[in-house]
Design a protein around this nucleic acid. Structure first.
Length: 592
RNA sequence: GGUUUCGUAGCUCAAUUGGAUAGAGCACCUGACUACGGAUCAGGAGGUUUGGGGUUCGAAUCCCUACGAGACCA
């Protein structure tokens, strides 16, 4: 039973015995910094039922706790707020539990499994900053869910076919001159992206020519030779034309090689990858099934629809009149496939909030179809990463490329580290590893600290910080503690929890309090699908430790109990930082 | 046109889901022991939470309205 649970129970008893009313669930909040205490109970909620003043209620409950609770040391009442202090023995017992719990913050299996689909790139362009937010969120969420007790399957659905892929194929066929990643020295995904851009340039030129000849913009966009040819390529591909398929395979393989370099660099991987080229025909049988069940209906042009107005949505097309699929058709099929492959209890999609409506429709249809897994489907909707100029647009060249950004971060980490000159004795591969850890620590933290639902801003003019509320700040705290641990080991000082007679320092109490929050934060992050909760916690813990570090002396305290205790505290803090950052996909360095 | 999300310090973000005098970081000022690592710590300044109404013991949070920004559906 946690301290908080005991305290809530004691408050409940206080209310029952003093006011003779049944108390609902007790809500506690951490006491604000400017007041004395650790936990605060708000008494306003009881004024009506008890017909007493907020202060009076606080006094009565406080007095009861003082006399009857075995964990409460003292209290004070400010207006309607009852602030509570705990006994040192309570803190010490709590810390004793934490330090002896090898799996602190990791929950036992809950017997449920969850699939997290994320990343889901297009094979016509390299990954950019927006993909990074997606990847980091998906990866971190997977780790958080695992820590909270789920079995996790990470999947990726690659968008490897369609008209956009044919565009880059066409441009390459016409303008590529047999160029390859090897011959050009260009990474495969960037090479494909280059031809996607070239297509667009040529296409625009053709439109302009047609417009100059008197055609309307709209018609010109439909009649330009290259768009017609791209459409023809798509049909050829669908028929399995050998030459087209070969070109498609060749270019896609380049892209996959490029992607794998990037995924490797950012430390992201998947248990299973689905390819749209294998799944794009799925879903049509589900449309048939839905028609029979009268979930769907046909219009005169033979197109199939669903009426979701009862759910507050519109009528929605699920199959075109000519029998071809729309996105939702494929998604229905792919979801069915995932379920028959893995039989998970939950399915998550990490996809940008521009598709909020799409997923509402998808889940609405799954419910109407009576799919048992429909209630376990969640859209992890995240906000776009904006630039100061607005949205990233590949056609306007304002896209922040993932590879470039990571490389630039590594360089910044390198120069910053060398300025400080603390690792001059490192071997070069050791140093390179450190630069990568710091670069990714800064980048991942930057993207994960913000509530996923909110859109956020990235300014390419300002490099991502290494000081203040950043990944490296937390990594630094870890490295510094490790330095202390090495010194303690050398001096033969053990980590020991002091006896009940020990007089605690306020900074020590605050540290134990901060540590005790960790499991709650992990659970909250899992429930709310929000790695930002873990991010903010890790920062808070590091900050509390740094205050402790500045305030008390660890090695030169005359009391050996204090020294041993502080070594123990430090070591648990470093472990908790390591775990918390681990949930964000961020590694910690021993030195930096 | 319909639907929807958002607007918090100069900038980037918090605010325990309706609770205290709205908090951090960056940037800007002032300080820090011969200290165990200064990528740190302590302090200062910075706010009519876009404007206006309402609900109540209490609103950044809920409702209405105006303005502004984004997204989606054709």
């Amino acid at each position: 039973m946690t301290i908080e649970a005991i305290l809530k129970e004691d408050i409940q008893k206080a209310i029952q015995t003093n006011f003779e009313i049944a108390a609902d669930e007790i809500l506690l909040q951490p006491t604000k910094k400017e007041f004395e205490g650790f936990y605060t109970f708000v008494t306003f909620t009881l004024t009506k039922t008890t017909r007493r003043s907020p202060v009076e209620i606080g006094q009565i409950i406080g007095n009861y706790l003082n006399e009857n609770s075995r964990i409460v040391e003292s209290f004070n009442v400010v207006q309607g707020f009852l602030n509570i202090n705990l006994k040192d023995t309570t803190w010490l017992d709590l810390f004793g539990e934490i330090i002896s719990d090898g799996s602190f913050g990791t929950f036992p299996s809950n017997g449920q499994s969850v699939m997290v689909e994320f990343s889901s790139p297009n094979t016509n362009k390299p990954l950019h900053l927006g993909h990074l937010r997606n990847n980091f969120l998906g990866d971190s969420l997977s780790k958080i869910l695992k820590a909270s007790g789920f079995d996790v399957v990470k999947t990726c659905l690659v968008n490897d076919r369609g008209i956009h892929i044919c565009k880059s194929m066409l441009a390459y066929r016409e303008l590529g001159g047999g160029e390859t990643p090897e011959s050009s020295g260009i990474k495969g995904d960037h090479l494909a992206g280059k031809y996607y851009v070239k297509f667009d340039v040529e296409y625009k030129k053709q439109i302009a020519e047609l417009v100059a000849q008197g055609m309307s913009d709209e018609d010109a966009a439909k009649k330009a030779p290259w768009i017609l040819e791209a459409q023809r390529l798509l049909l050829l591909w669908e028929k399995g034309d050998a030459e087209t398929v070969a070109l498609w395979q060749k270019m896609n393989n380049w892209v996959y090689q490029g992607f794998s370099v990037t995924y490797n660099k950012i430390g992201v991987n998947f248990d299973k990858t689905y390819y749209e080229s294998n799944t794009y025909l799925l879903g049509k049988d589900i449309i048939e099934e839905g028609l029979k069940q009268n979930v769907f209906f046909k219009k005169e042009d033979n197109s199939v629809w669903i009426d979701l107005t009862e759910e507050g949505l519109d009528e929605k097309l699920v199959l075109r009149g000519d029998g071809t699929s729309v996105y939702i058709t494929q998604d229905l099929g792919t979801t069915e496939l995932k379920n028959s492959d893995f039989h998970n209890d939950r399915y998550l999609w990490v996809v940008g909030n521009e598709q909020d409506y799409h997923f509402k429709v998808l889940f609405g249809i799954l419910k109407r179809l009576g799919r048992p897994y429909a209630d376990g489907c969640f859209h992890i909707s995240y906000g776009m990463v904006d630039l100061p100029s607005g949205k990233m647009k590949s056609r306007e060249g304002t896209v922040v490329d993932a590879d470039d950004l990571v490389d630039q971060m590594v360089k910044t980490a390198e120069s910053r580290t060398q300025e400080l000159g603390k690792i001059d004795d490192f071997a070069s591969d050791e140093a390179r590893k450190l630069y990568n850890q710091l670069a990714l620590g800064a980048l991942k933290y930057f993207l994960l600290k913000v509530d996923p639902k909110k859109r956020m801003l990235f300014n390419p003019e300002e490099s991502i910080d290494f000081q203040g509320h950043t990944g490296p700040f937390i990594q630094y705290t870890y490295a510094r503690i490790r330095s202390i641990a090495r010194k303690a080991e050398q001096a033969g000082i053990a980590a020991v929890v002091p006896p009940a007679t020990y007089q605690m320092h306020q900074a020590e109490r605050e540290l134990v309090f901060a540590l005790a929050q960790y499991p709650t934060k992990v659970m909250a992050a899992a429930n709310e699908f929000a790695p930002s909760i873990v991010s903010l916690y890790a920062f808070e813990l590091a900050k509390v430790y740094n205050q402790f570090y500045a305030e008390v002396s660890i090695f030169s305290d005359p009391n050996p109990e204090a020294v041993q205790f502080r070594i123990a505290l430090s070591s648990v803090v470093s472990e908790t930082i390591r775990k918390a950052l681990g949930l964000l996909g961020i590694e910690v360095p021993e030195r930096m």
